Computed example of a mutant assay.
Amino acid sequence: MRALILSLFLVGAGASHAQLVPPERAPITAPAAPKKAESDEANLQMHGHYRNKAGQDVHSPAKSVDGQVPAGASAKCRDGSYSFSKSRRGTCSRHGGVASWL
């Protein structure tokens, strides 16, 4: 009875049902994965993009202007370009394969 009165009071005060779920019964959500840095367009020789299977816009493999590893690169391809792939499958497939993962 006490809980019913409290919930009616909270609902009347503008609280939503989601706020009434006890913490021990609240759904558990996984923390968001850390976001990788986006590619630095100014330091890349090519500026193409493609859409991966997950529907994400991804920078096409490109060589860096200064020879350094560009921000957001996930792998170095055997032809010297850097891949910004979000998954390992197919990474550097048109660039001689993966030379090293970053």
Results as ranks from 00 to 15, higher is better:
48 G>Y: 04
53 K>F: 15
10 L>E: 07
52 N>I: 02
33 A>G: 08
15 A>S: 10
85 S>T: 03
47 H>A: 05
67 G>I: 02
94 R>T: 14
101 W>A: 08
92 C>M: 03
62 A>C: 03
14 G>M: 15
88 R>K: 12
49 H>T: 15
26 A>F: 14
11 V>H: 14
83 S>L: 02
25 R>E: 14
44 L>H: 01
18 A>F: 07
60 S>A: 10
88 R>I: 04
97 G>K: 08
51 R>I: 12
44 L>P: 00
26 A>P: 04
26 A>L: 12
101 W>M: 07
44 L>A: 01
54 A>L: 06
73 A>P: 00
51 R>D: 05
5 I>D: 14
32 A>V: 05
16 S>N: 10
78 R>A: 07
11 V>K: 15
73 A>W: 00
37 A>S: 08
67 G>E: 02
13 A>D: 12
70 P>S: 02
79 D>N: 06
13 A>F: 15
94 R>E: 09
14 G>Q: 05
42 A>D: 13
34 P>T: 15
18 A>C: 05
28 I>V: 08
94 R>W: 07
76 K>Q: 13
34 P>D: 09
27 P>G: 02
48 G>K: 09
36 K>Q: 07
29 T>C: 10
82 Y>A: 00
7 S>D: 11
2 R>G: 11
19 Q>V: 09
6 L>T: 14
5 I>K: 06
6 L>G: 11
11 V>S: 11
13 A>H: 13
50 Y>L: 11
70 P>M: 00
